[in-house]
Amino acid sequence: MITELPDTTTKDISKLLVRLRSETGAMALGRVMTLIIVVDEGGADDAVEAAIHASRQHPSRIIALVAGSGRGASRLDAQVRLGTEAGGSEVVVLRLYGELTKHGASVVTPLLAADSPIVAWWPGPADDVATSPIGQLASRRITDASQGGNPRKALHRRRAEYAAGDTDMAWARATRWRGLLATALDLPPYEPVTSVTVTGATDSASTDLLAGWLAVRLRCPVRRARSAPGTGLVHVRMERKSGPIELDRPDRRTGTLTQPGQPDRRLDLVRPGTAQSLAEELSRLGADEVYREALVKGLPLVTNARN
């Protein structure tokens, strides 16, 4: 069910939400959080779709703050979705115009679900995430460095501005790689890793985070090598006395794990979609210490190759 409220107020939206919830009764599921999406018109539809999909695991009230033109008169258009169109969540899409575009935090305040955590997500480029008014409302802030023109620069910005509760989806995209590498070290031979090379696209923030994480955890030299833009994470090589552990994904789909004395193992290593990464982000509502370490401490430890 989709209800449009053109040129409206937050009071009317609140009333509508209460009314819809009591009318549809059974659909009023236990929402565990409010997810605020800060987005522009171009990215709005995709972001809302991804959020709805992710909210199947994490029932939430989803509020999309879509900034329109800042010129002209202030105006608020709202769209409320419930039921099948909302994947079981409540979705409120707010389109802000005029002076109101600068006051998104004030607009969402009356609409936040009671007594539950607030998560903010910037699917596109973002600045001053934690110190922005929306960032101050939220205890969890999710960015996506890969969406801007220069993902690695965006990641360094995240590093400079880091506050507890921040994470970047580039980190979620490295999770599967991290899991495989960690599992490889669970098994014999138990030898320290003496050095690491991580290869990835020049525009791959996940590669940088993975390298930073390995540098912090393994306390050994880590080199970051470059591949062509758009190739994503390509290769990790961890040197050990008995020979290297290598995880290779040349085609962005299928990976190969190579270890000395063992046959090559192929595995599915497709880049997770936005909804999947968002769902992973939403399953943690506290600060991600391991991310902080990889970002803040790890990045400077990595040697960037010149080739």
Partner: peptide, 28 residues
């Protein structure tokens, strides 16, 4: 700086704080 120690049950890539890291079964 010496590399992190690795032994049975000690894996520097695992951290109780790291709730994201999936538990993937070993070869089998």
């Amino acid at each position: 700086m010496s590399p992190a120690r690795i032994s049975r049950g000690t894996n520097p890539l695992r951290d109780p704080d790291d709730l994201r890291l999936p538990k993937i079964a070993g070869p089998c």
